[in-house]
Simulated assay, not measured.
Amino acid sequence: MTAPLIVDRLTKRYGSLTALQDMSFTVAPGEIFGFVGSNGAGKSTTMRIILGVLGADSGQVRLGERPIDLDLRRRIGYMPEERGLYPKMKVGKQLSFLAQLHGLSRAEADDQVETWVRRLGIHERINDDVNNLSLGNQQRVQLAAALVHNPDVLVLDEPFSGLDPVAVDVMSDVLKEKAAQGVPVIFSSHQLELVQRLCDRVGIITKGTMRALGTVDDLRSTGEIRLDVGAPAAPSGWADHLPGVQGSVQRGALTTVSLTPGTDEQAILAAALATGPVTHFALSKPDLTELFREVVSA
């Protein structure tokens, strides 16, 4: 089953506090969608409504044209931010139990457990109690619990939290692998460099409202216009008083110049050449971390 995950105008209030206001986005089959925002912005609330853990005051979540009901929820792989594992239950038995809750037979569940504990590098801990594992290995078990029933949708809340770089690479490969199989993947993370590297599209949420939505390249193109100019002989502040320059930051031989729309870039180049040789001259886009700060502060 391959269908888009559609979040359609979700609103959720707690008394006078509006946690979500008309939250809408779509995650296409085979797409990795990054959901980012400050703590308390509404990311986890949205994910819990998708799973049916919380009810929305208005709006709807659908898989394709079908509203998500109990049967469809069994086809979703969910990884909560707070670990939802039984601490005194052995890893293998726990994963098999969870797979059977999602409708797999005992034999199917055990086969899937074997596959995922090996894939995620925790096979040697399969007979250990969860509370005897490191936090990173508990996170791997939590991901296995989201994957063990071969879900049609993946919803992961802070899946990279507490992982070492090797485990981050393993988990990244798993998400790309599931997306390549046509699974819609949504995950939240504060590790914006990772979001920028992995995601096809990104949604930035602040105070329960979607403030920016699009591909990483599109979002980065909406920021201020900047030029990176390599001018080794240029004095400090050489560009600050040029027409259209909003400011500049100089790091050694490289100066990043912020421009107002419509500024003549060739005039900036001519001014740089007047100071000596120019070794680099190119448009510079803000990374996702800078863009996030701009959106949140706005």
Rank of each mutant, 00 (worst) to 15 (best):
F97V: 07
W238G: 05
G208H: 07
L85S: 08
D57E: 09
F292K: 00
I126T: 13
N127Y: 11
T256A: 09
T206K: 14
Q246T: 06
Y78D: 05
T209V: 15
E193I: 04
R74I: 03
T255C: 12
R118S: 14
I204G: 00
K88E: 12
D22N: 15
T275E: 14
D217I: 00
S221H: 04
E290P: 04
L72H: 09
P165T: 10
V130R: 11
V27I: 13
N150H: 15
G252P: 11
E65G: 14
T2M: 09
S297W: 01
V183T: 15
S248V: 08
R226K: 12
L269C: 04
P277E: 11
G34N: 03
G237N: 08
A99L: 06
I49F: 10
A41C: 11
Q60T: 15
E31C: 06
D164F: 11
K43W: 11
L283M: 08
I76E: 04
L273Q: 13
M89Y: 05
G262F: 09
L175E: 07
R48D: 10
D110W: 13
A271S: 14
R48N: 13
G52F: 12
A282N: 08
T289A: 12
S16R: 15
P80E: 04
T46W: 01
P184S: 12
S105V: 13
G59R: 02
K43T: 03
V91E: 10
G84H: 07
P151A: 14
E114F: 04
A19K: 03
K90H: 09
T279G: 06
V202A: 01
V183Y: 02
M171S: 08
H123S: 12
M79K: 04
T46F: 02
I50Q: 02
P165R: 10
N127G: 10
M47W: 06
K207L: 07
F35Q: 00
H149L: 14
G103D: 13
T2Q: 14
V148T: 14
G276S: 07
T18D: 12
L156R: 02
G230A: 06
L135A: 11
D8C: 09
A56P: 08
R140S: 14
R197G: 00
L104R: 02
K178I: 04
I186Q: 03
D57A: 10
I68W: 07
N39W: 08
V27F: 00
T18G: 07
Q21M: 06
V295R: 01
G42N: 08
S248R: 12
G262T: 10
V296G: 02
L63G: 02
V278A: 05
W116E: 12
L147D: 07
E31R: 05
V245H: 06
R201Q: 10
G247S: 07
S297G: 07
P261I: 12
S134V: 12
V61A: 08
A298I: 03
D173E: 15
P87W: 03
T263H: 09
P165E: 11
G77E: 07
L133H: 05
I6H: 01
A167Q: 15
P261T: 13
G59Y: 06
R201K: 13
V117Q: 13
G230R: 04
G40Q: 10
